[in-house]
Design a protein around this nucleic acid. Structure first.
Length: 371
DNA sequence: AAGCCGTGGTA
DNA sequence: TTACCAAGGCT
């Protein structure tokens, strides 16, 4: 390691990473890189987008499924967007899936199927912001980009005992990351910082005794690391209510619609439902049904979104299959192929308990959320 | 630039 | 139970 290009702190962290790095499906570990293997930019990009505000555990099966279905970015660019949305269903933040598809098309059509190899070039693509551009540039292209995500913010805020709250403190912390990022192995350094934040420098009860920075951490020396980073207070979530209508035909089909392309659950599939209102006194009765039928109340779904909590009253009716241009009838045993967000799967499960047999919908945790 | 945008795991 | 929050981006 060159002392001129790699500061002592970064060198120390890289040594820790060589011994304690996580093995992840999209990652090429230090040993394999030593043997000349490089990270695949498509894999790095796909994993980084999936990992935005999402846990490693949740991402793993989706990452594998996407790679099997679409082995290259050109394959993904050629895929029907409905297929991509259906494959993404359950991961959340569905604008990511729409942008993923748009980004793949841009790479395939405007960049000859190759990702730009600089932070600036990557930053112009849909769904790639400051963090993701830096991460891909560092991990896939060995660029010394300053990679800062929530993990890095936590590590840096503790290492330097940053006294101002997020998000205002971001530029200060970004400057610290820029200083620390080495010319050699910038991708490993970024991943090392994130591994450290995920496994040692955790939000609660950090394992400071095991931390490679425990001799340099100002928060550990002077304060309580658990109190960092400081954060601006957050608002509480309002409650919204509505009703959902599960219409089943005698042939065993269910009536579905497509949601508008943008906004909440944009482009995803739904059962008919009322507007979700903050009012406590209406919108949950059968008079708001999409068409008249013998609607029977069959339960309630509680679902928590990012900025509100939803209480959904579910109605069910068996009704002759009518032609309705606003949607389509889908066999109940074919729902797995649909782009149904989790809240819709919950609602359908309340009306048709066997709809997602074998899936998570019937887990004790899921049942507890529905009454 | 602050609000919008999902979901599941953890303590 | 409730609260927090995880490899953020877009408008």
């Amino acid at each position: 390691m060159d002392a001129k290009t790699t500061n002592p702190l970064a060198a120390h962290l890289l040594g820790w990473y060589d011994r304690h790095h996580r093995d992840l499906p999209w990652r090429v570990g230090p040993a394999m890189q030593q043997a000349g293997q490089r990270a695949n930019p498509y894999h790095v990009w796909l994993s980084e987008v999936m990992l935005q505000q999402t846990t490693v555990q949740a991402v793993k099966p989706y990452f594998q499924k996407f790679l099997v279905t679409w082995p290259t970015v050109v394959d993904l660019a050629a895929a029907p967007v409905e297929d991509v949305m259906a494959a993404w269903a359950g991961l959340g933040y569905y604008a990511r899936a729409r942008n993923l598809k748009r980004c793949a098309e841009a790479v395939a059509n405007d960049h000859g199927g190759l990702f730009p190899d600089t932070e600036e070039g990557l930053r112009t693509l849909p769904g790639i912001g400051d963090y993701t551009a830096a991460a891909i540039a560092a991990i896939a292209f060995d660029r010394p980009a300053a990679v800062m995500d929530g993990n890095v913010e936590r590590v840096i805020s503790r290492l330097y005992a940053i006294s101002s709250p997020l998000p205002a403190s971001k530029p200060i912390m970004k400057g610290k990351v820029r200083e620390l990022t080495p010319i050699e192995r910038p991708g490993d350094f970024a991943q090392a910082m994130m591994d450290l934040g995920a496994t040692i420098c955790t939000p609660k009860r950090p394992a400071c005794a095991l931390c490679p920075f425990n001799g340099h951490c100002l928060a550990l020396r002077e304060f309580d690391p658990e109190n960092f980073p400081l954060k601006a207070p957050k608002k509480q979530k309002p409650l919204r209510q509505g009703a959902a209508f599960v219409a089943v035909s005698p042939e065993g089909e269910i009536f579905l619609r497509r949601r508008p392309a943008s906004g909440l659950l944009g482009g995803m599939t739904e059962v008919p439902n009322t507007a979700w209102t903050a009012r406590q006194d209406g919108g949950t009765t059968a008079d708001h049904a999409p068409f008249s039928a013998d609607w029977q109340s069959c339960g309630t779904v509680i679902h928590v979104f990012t900025h509100f909590e939803l209480r959904l009253t579910v109605f069910r009716a068996v009704t002759a299959r009518s032609s309705d241009a606003s949607g389509w009838w889908e066999p109940v045993d074919h729902l797995e192929a649909q782009a149904l967000p989790t809240v819709m799967k919950k609602a359908i499960s309340v009306a048709i308990p066997t709809a997602f047999n074998g899936a998570d919908m019937n887990s004790p945790a899921m049942k507890r959320k529905s009454r």
